[in-house]
Structure formats: C-alpha cells, structure tokens
Design a protein around this nucleic acid. Structure first.
Lengths: 261, 261
DNA sequence: GTCATATGTACAATATATTGGACATAGATG
DNA sequence: CATCTATGTCCAATATATTGTACATATGAC
C-alpha cells in the first residue's frame, strides 16, 4: 500500500521496507501467495521479492503453507506480536470492557486503533440482536470513513492530519468526496467533546459512537465504539454514551502502560 | 543470539537480519531499551543499530516507550502476529485443550512449539495446587532441556538434529553435559512411542509429560505437556498420558490448518 | 578543572544488496 | 507444431546500505 508513495521512479527500494511491504500485503490479503504473485501485485521486481521471501523464510518470519510454494506470515511474527501484547497488557482489560459494553447495550462493540495511517478494528464483540452488525477484524480502513478516525488523529495539527492521511482516503466507498475541511472540523469537534457520533457514511443503516481511550501521552491511543441500527442508536444516545465513557475510563492508560518496568 | 554464528569477522551484516536480531533481542529482554544499549548488548555497530531502529520506528515495527528514547516492539508486530494466529486458528482449540487438561489433572499444562532452534511455551494453564509450578511464556529455552524437545525434532535425521541444535545447548543449566548421542536415542524413543516423559533435567522436583500435536506434514508441529511434582507424576502416569493423548487428538491438525482456503 | 562513560549525530568509503534481464521449465491454447 | 503465460533460477552491474570514525553533548567521579 505504500508502493504509491515510492519516490520518483528509478530509485531502488530498501530491503527492509520492501520486506514489510510484503508482510503487510500478505496480512491484507489474508491468504498464502506465491512469491511471483506477490511481486506482480505489489509492483516489485520479481528477483527482489524472491530474494526477500527466501530471507524471511529462513528467519521464520514467513512460512511455506498452502502448497505450491505459497508463503504466509510465520510463527516468529506470532511470537513477536505476543510479546507486544504482553508488554502493553491491554488484552484482558479490553475484553472485559467489550464484554461489559455488549451486556449493557446488546450492540456491537469494538476496540479500534490506528495501523500506520489507516484505521483498524483490533477486537470486537458482536451484539445480541437477531441481525448482527459486524466488521472484519484487522482490515485496514481509511481513517475518514469512521467515527473513531475523528478521535484517533485529534492530537495532530490540521496540517499534520492532511499530511498523514492519504488524499485518496477522503473518497468514500460510494464514490462521494468528503471535503477535508469538513473532516477537520469534525475532528476538532470530536476533540472538544471527547466523543464522536454520526450516521455512518459508509452505509445507510448504522449509527456509530466512538469515545477515546487515552494513552500515556494523553491523546487517543485507541477508541471504544458502538455500531448500532440508526433508530436504536439515536433513541439510546445518552445511555450508550454513558456506557462507552464508563468502559473507556476503565481502560484509561491501560493500552500504553507497560506491565512491569 | 545469532550473533554467535556470524560468519568469520569482517563481513557486513544484512540489514534485514540485524533488524530481526534487534526484534528478537527486545522480545527476549521483554523491556524497552535505548538503541545504544541494544547495540552494545548484541554486539552490533552503533551506527547500524541507530539506522535500523529509526527505520523500524518509521514503519511502526518499533515504538518509543518508557521514555529517554527507549524503544520496544511496536503495534505493527501485534497486527501481523494476530493475522498469523487468525490464519492458523489454533488459539481457541488450544485454550480448550489446556482447560480440559487442567480440569482433569489439576497440574500445570502447556502448549509448546519451536521458535527457530529453541523451545518455547506458547500457552500455559497453571495447576490447581497450593504450590504451583509454572514457567515463563515466550522465553526461548534450549531444546535438549525439555521433554517436548525430544518430540519437536523427531522428524529430522540425526545429522539434521545435530546441525539444527546449537552445540552449547547440550550444556544443562547445572553445568552438566548431555551427551548428544543420549539425546538422539531419546528422540528416537519418543518418536516410536509417540510420547516422552522424564524427571526434568533442569530441576530436581518435577516430572514432565509431553505428547505431540501433529500438523499437516504429519510431524509434531507442537506439543502438549504436563509439569507435575515427581511423586504425583509417577503415581498418575497412565492416567495423565491418557488425558494428554485425548487432548492432543482434539487438536490434531489444528495448529497448521488454515481456517479457510 | 580533568577524565571517563553514556548517548546521539554526521559523513565518507566500500562491500554488497537490489535489480533488470537472460534463461529454463511447465502448462495451456490454438 | 508454435506461442503465450506463469513460475522459478541465475548473474553481472551499479546504486546504496552498512559501518568505522570523528564529533557533540551531558553527566558523574574525583
């Protein structure tokens, strides 16, 4: 996805950057691919990709799986990720907060963070309705498409926000153009109020609530969200926001607080 | 830890390898460190480490945390690890197996895998005794020190095993030397019997039971273990082994089976 | 004050990593 | 049969990444 921002052509890419581009691509695809396919789809030289894939395989960062020479993310990444999760020990508290939210509201509750310059759902608890509303965990979504996005960039200056978010991410899935100035105004509003709610701009039937979970630097390290049918969301607005704020208070500082040391 | 096997001096290290050496080192230390400290402790040139750390920071692979310029594993690694875990969806089944083992035996149950050429405890459920026996999750331990180690390398030839395990790993924590031929004989025995049990060679009061969890290639992709006081282990040997085999059967093929595709 | 250690930055030299392109094979298509 | 695509390997050329070294600053010892 960073291929776009390769400086003017003719430059060589650094191995490390391409390596992580490969890893991110596999994560996004969520399936094993052949080196050849990877090269073609991320627009990298085949010889480079073969070289890097072999290096990553020998390090356990990638693994053969799915046959025919296909590779996918490896066990070593699991271990490294587990060490991160263990250090910033937010998992348990996070699950508890989502559990609590789901119990109190019967709606879909999500714990969200930034992944680079995208938004992603880290953990989710589906609501208890006959028709559940849910999203995919771990998929990268443009920041402007989400309520949480307004909160997650609120610590940046307007200019930094515009530099941070890829311009094409202001194009909504329906094709409409979200004016960056409109987005910035909503960011500032979210910052002032410490919350953001709206009828989702990526579909026609959900209402989204987001509140920040502040980390050690005082800005939103993550968000807690509820995704509800529009009617219910609007009808229960105050109660839902109370629940969210309560749950977020329980998490406060947790996502960024090392367990020891 | 791979610094030892740097080919004859005078060679440059490849950035990718050093980068993952840094990541592994941080995982092992389980705390944030300054780039300077990292360089000193892994024996790498300071300028290289600074260069790489900055690259990794800008990719979200590392994060500033702990102040004073200290860095630790970053959020991106958590996402990548979560994608791995999601693909090879063993977590839920694994927890269930450990739960079942803990219920049936009241002993400490572990799920273990190889991490490169070391053994590591991936998940654990502590026993229900007044004095619990437990180990650290995610720490790298020499393969010959463990019962599971006999099973995890059993698919390799004798020669491959000796090439795979660093020679110094046959030195036990007490300083005694475990003869590699003895180890190989135990590996073959474990392979034949589909299990391995012994009075632990790293302490004087535990008995260890290990059975393989076979992956798609048919060899031990992981192990399930019980760690018990010696008396209890020996007294309940048959029952404990039955429990382990039953639990492993429930996991069979799970650790390496992609959820879709 | 001097000296030593810890920490971070800057830069040039050269060892080498990245890359384009040639080559080989297999399968599909017509 | 010829032709095309998909896949993987090999190799030389050169753009550049790694690294030694020098430099800058802060802190503490004495």
């Amino acid at each position: 996805m960073d291929a776009v921002q390769d400086e003017a052509a003719g430059k060589r890419a650094r191995g490390l950057d391409r390596a992580f581009e490969i890893l991110d691509f596999l994560r996004q695809k969520r399936q094993a691919l052949k080196p050849n396919e990877i090269a073609a789809q991320i627009g990298a030289p085949r010889s480079s990709v073969y070289e890097l894939v072999n290096l990553l395989l020998s390090n356990g960062i990638l693994e053969f799986t799915g046959g025919e020479g296909r590779v996918y993310l490896g066990r070593k990444l699991y271990f490294l990720g587990a060490a991160y999760e263990n250090h910033f020990d937010f998992t348990r508290e996070c699950e508890a907060a989502l559990e609590q939210l789901a119990d109190e509201t019967r709606e879909t509750a999500q714990f969200c963070m930034l992944d680079g310059n995208k938004y992603t759902v880290v953990r989710m608890r589906e609501g208890a309705r006959p028709f559940r509303i849910s999203t995919d965990i771990g998929q990268s979504v443009p920041i402007p498409w989400t309520a949480s996005g307004r909160l997650l960039v609120a610590h940046l200056s307007d200019q930094d926000i515009l530099n941070f978010i890829p311009p094409q991410d202001f194009r909504l899935p329906g094709g409409e153009w979200l004016e960056p100035q409109t987005f910035l105004a909503e960011v500032r509003q979210a910052e002032r109020e410490g919350l953001f709610t709206f009828n989702s701009i990526v579909d026609s039937f959900t209402h989204c609530f987001a509140v920040p979970v502040r980390g050690e630097e005082g800005h939103a390290a993550a968000t807690l969200c509820l995704v509800t049918p529009r009617d219910d969301g609007i009808a229960n607005r105050d109660r839902y926001l109370d629940c969210l704020k309560k749950a977020a208070a329980g998490l406060e500082h947790a996502p960024a607080r090392p367990r020891r040391g």
